[in-house]
């Protein structure tokens, strides 16, 4: 039953991704001008050389931008599907795969570190706060989470950066210490990466945690008043076992169903934090490629982002189906 449901969702996911790829391509076509114009401007501005329309046309031909949009779309998507080739990064004079390369994995590392940190903090704390409603810890956590929502991320990043440099004498910028920057992957390098992920993870996780904390707490309070919880208590179940088995399990549902949203929100907040902490990630690259009209780089990043959002939505759909038996009937 769950397998059939998952297979259905998987097909839906592939269809969604193709629709998204068309939309991404259209979005890339919308800005006026193209990279040929931008290139000509960069190369010849200030040199006194006058650039004619035919010069730009020959540049277009060189970049393959002269062909109709639909043809370029199929070449692009064909390359991605068959060879995992995301095309050419004009501004970097290399392939998109080379430009994105490591940045993809590092972005994913930050994203997942943040997600895991968010859920590890938000879920147990919210459940505890709901059970101890109107107590000092509950009020404290509410204040803490509103702070997380109110303080801007770049400010938090600066504060943490300041504290870690002045108090601990450790640099938190970048993702690796200098000695590991170009070293091959090893356990020590992974540990070094993990250490560098803590500050950006904390910064990004605070606001996400604050939001999920309130969601889980509210759902948990709702679930605690359910008759089924009283009925379970009337069976003589020990209190904490009861709380975890019945209300807590359902309080996790809204978190599971919004994993995709969280991925998107964290990715959107990433560039500004990355700027402060000088992290090499995809958000800044995306903004730079918009400015340069470097369309295949922008396209690849957008496509990867939507891929991970759609993938996480798929994961949350399947997880919800496993968590809540009522869903399978509706999902077919």
């Amino acid at each position: 039953m769950v397998l059939r449901f998952a297979a259905n969702r998987l097909i839906g996911m592939i269809v969604t991704l193709f629709a998204v790829s068309i939309m991404v391509f259209i979005i890339m076509e919308i800005p006026p001008g193209d990279y040929a114009e931008r290139y000509a401007f960069r190369k010849f501005s200030g040199t006194g050389v006058s650039v004619t329309e035919s010069d730009i046309d020959s540049l277009r031909q060189e970049f393959g931008l002269d062909r109709p949009a639909w043809e370029r779309y199929f070449t692009w998507i064909g390359g991605i599907v068959t060879e995992f080739d995301f095309g050419e990064a004009f501004a970097y004079e290399t392939s998109v795969n080379n430009v994105i390369g490591d940045r993809l994995w590092l972005t994913l590392a930050i994203l997942y570190a943040t997600l895991i940190l968010t859920y590890l903090l938000a879920i147990p704390i919210a459940i505890y706060a709901a059970v101890k409603r109107h107590s000092l810890p509950d009020y404290g956590l509410t204040i803490f989470s509103y702070l997380g929502l109110a303080v801007p991320n770049f400010m938090l990043a600066l504060i943490l950066l300041y504290i870690s440099v002045t108090t601990f004498g450790a640099g938190v910028g970048g993702l690796f210490s200098p000695e590991y920057e170009d070293a091959p992957w090893s356990v020590a390098k992974a540990l070094d990466l993990f250490k560098h992920l803590i500050v950006p993870g904390l910064v990004l996780a605070w606001s996400a945690t604050a939001l999920q904390l309130q969601t889980v707490r509210a759902t948990m309070l709702d679930e605690l008043n359910k008759l089924s919880v009283t009925a379970a208590r009337a069976r003589g179940l020990p209190e904490w076992r009861l709380l975890l088995k019945y209300p807590a399990r359902l309080a996790v549902n809204p978190v599971v169903s919004t994993i995709g949203f969280d991925v998107n929100r964290i990715f959107s907040e990433l560039p500004i934090v990355a700027l402060v902490l000088s992290l090499p990630e995809l958000g800044q690259l995306l903004i730079a490629s918009y400015i340069d009209l470097d369309m295949y780089v922008a396209g690849a990043i957008l496509l990867m982002l939507t891929f991970f959002i759609v993938l996480m939505n798929f994961v949350s759909d399947v997880a919800l189906a496993l968590l809540d038996p009522r869903i399978k009937l509706a999902g077919g």
């Binding site: 359910k226 008759l227 089924s228 009283t230 009925a231 379970a232 208590r233 009337a234 069976r235 003589g236 179940l237 020990p238 019945y246 399990r249 359902l250 968590l323 809540d324 038996p325 009522r326």
Partner: peptide, 22 residues
């Protein structure tokens, strides 16, 4: 806890809500 459920049991007005749906 031994008495509750073991010696004295209880049933409620709404049979749907007294079971956990999951």
């Amino acid at each position: 806890r031994r008495i509750r459920g073991g010696e004295i049991a209880m049933i409620f007005q709404e049979p749907m809500a007294s079971f956990s749906p999951v």
